[in-house]
Amino acid sequence: MSATRLAAVMVCTLVAAACGDEAAETVTSPETVTFSTAQFSNVIGPGGRRFYSFTLETSGPVTVTLASVTSADTGAPLTIPLRVGVGRPQGTECPPATVVTVPAALQSQFTHLAGDGIYCIDVADPGTVTTPVRFAVRFTHP
């Protein structure tokens, strides 16, 4: 075999092998998780609290937004903060595992990483409520 032919054979082999690893790879498709958006609204007075229970079929992040706090009488928006948390219900209580005290906003205020099971969102007066207020919490979960 001439030097030229030998070189051609070697280089063609190298070229063919250069991309060979890609064909051998096993690609695992990522698991698709669908997120749902829900809303929890209610009214609390001074010292009051309300909670809402929901079920997670799979683990994942629960993202919470206290989106509105208004006067229950007039509907006027209020800037007072409320205490919002996520936990697991225990009897008639919802002891929050993650909790923040925030005013209403249209951006998420916290995320709680949860396993599957029953959870609750708790909204409570941190001492700022003087007359009944209506709140709306938006949350997304897997």
Partner: peptide, 15 residues
């Protein structure tokens, strides 16, 4: 704000 789930209006955040 955020729409009421029953479609009856808008719960305000800022005004």
């Amino acid at each position: 704000g955020i729409p009421r789930p029953d479609g009856s209006g808008c719960n305000l955040t800022r005004a």
